[in-house]
Design a protein around this nucleic acid. Structure first.
Length: 126
DNA sequence: CGCCTGACTGAGG
DNA sequence: CCCTCAGCCAGGC
């Protein structure tokens, strides 16, 4: 992928986002806006997309960052249909049992709904 | 500062 | 279902 090009303050923001994304369980999905909210960055859904495009290839803190579990608020895959990224994301989702119909996923069936204890755990990672 | 571009969103048609 | 539009926030120029 691309080299990460952000200053240290933005890198902190990116790390917060990556950490939230890591909390999405296999077989579940979330949205850019929801991740932004949980990360304490309301209104910055587009930043989440940008950030996920720069996930370190080796993962973050020894754990992979499941970028493919993040979708648009309507449950659709953000990449254009037919693009390589689209196919990759769709395949990864289906691999873990997420049913992808055309370009979208039924959020009622697969949306991640963290309980309070999960969210609190994200506040105190170390 | 303006202008344009995004892995975005919500409301409408 | 599709598409459009205004609003949104960061960044680059």
């Amino acid at each position: 992928m691309e080299q990460i090009k952000v200053n240290s303050s933005q890198l902190d923001t990116y790390k917060k986002i990556w950490r939230v994304v890591q909390a999405i369980p296999s077989g579940k999905v979330s949205s850019y806006g929801a991740i932004a909210d949980i990360a304490g960055l309301p209104g910055r859904a587009r930043l989440v997309g940008k950030c996920l495009g720069q996930v370190p290839k080796d993962g973050f803190c020894g754990q992979p960052v499941p970028w493919f579990r993040v979708l648009r608020s309507d449950g659709s895959i953000a990449f254009p249909i037919g693009s390589e990224a689209f196919d990759r994301q769709k395949a990864l989702l289906m691999d873990e049992g997420v049913f992808v119909k055309g370009r979208r996923i039924n959020l009622n069936d697969f949306s991640w709904r963290p309980d309070l204890s999960e969210l609190l755990a994200l506040e105190q990672p170390y």
